[in-house]
């Protein structure tokens, strides 16, 4: 098992306590882990596997099954483009492609090298009446165009440079 720092240990313990009081299962445990770390670190899985006496393979079985779980750190800004049917017929594919080009995200990847942005697709967020929709850092924007999107991304980029 990989070593964890006292700081991380404290975080992990918090998740464990919640898991015990809520009578959680592997899925809710992983959801809490991801909430705490932003992704699911290998160390955390190892730690819980030992604490709860559940083989790591069972954790990874669940992690790889559900699209919500990520084993790598994500970008500071999360842009999720809806690719539901309504968004698809209104051009979501083109939106994503131009965004990926703009941010220089290469094939098979979803995060920029500097971890500023992660661009991902979601099957449907249920705001079909304002397709195409994009979620930028948890806020939904409807009737999106490539132009509008690029402007918003530029603003986000500027913000991050300031801090």
């Amino acid at each position: 098992m990989l070593e964890v720092s006292p700081e991380v240990e404290k975080k992990l313990d918090g998740v464990l306590q919640k898991h015990i009081t809520d009578e959680g299962n592997i899925i809710s445990l992983l959801q809490d882990m991801q909430e705490a770390f932003g992704y699911i670190p290998e160390k955390a899985v190892g730690w819980f596997s030992k604490k709860l006496d559940i083989p790591e393979s069972r954790f990874y079985g669940v992690i790889t099954f559900y699209s919500q779980f990520h084993t790598h750190p994500r970008g500071r800004n999360l842009i999720t483009a809806c690719c539901g049917t309504a968004c698809h017929v209104k051009g979501s594919e083109r939106l994503i492609n131009s965004l990926r080009r703009e941010l220089n995200i290469v094939e098979e990847e979803d995060t920029t090298d500097d971890r500023k942005f992660t661009v991902e697709k979601v099957a449907c967020i249920g705001t079909c009446s304002m397709a195409p929709a994009v979620i930028i850092n948890k806020k939904i924007y409807g009737n999106m165009t490539a132009d509008k999107l690029m402007k918003m991304v530029k603003t986000l980029e500027g913000k991050k440079n300031e801090d």
Binding site: G24, N25, S28, V62, F65, Y66, S67, Q68, F69, A123
Partner: peptide, 26 residues
């Protein structure tokens, strides 16, 4: 409440049950 974790197949009832139990939703 039980939160899904992003798997369309979990709308199928036996898969949904597996998912509530904390397993792969098959």
């Amino acid at each position: 409440l039980k939160l899904g974790a992003g798997a369309f197949v979990c709308g199928e009832e036996t898969a949904l049950i597996a998912s509530i139990e904390g397993q792969r939703g098959m």
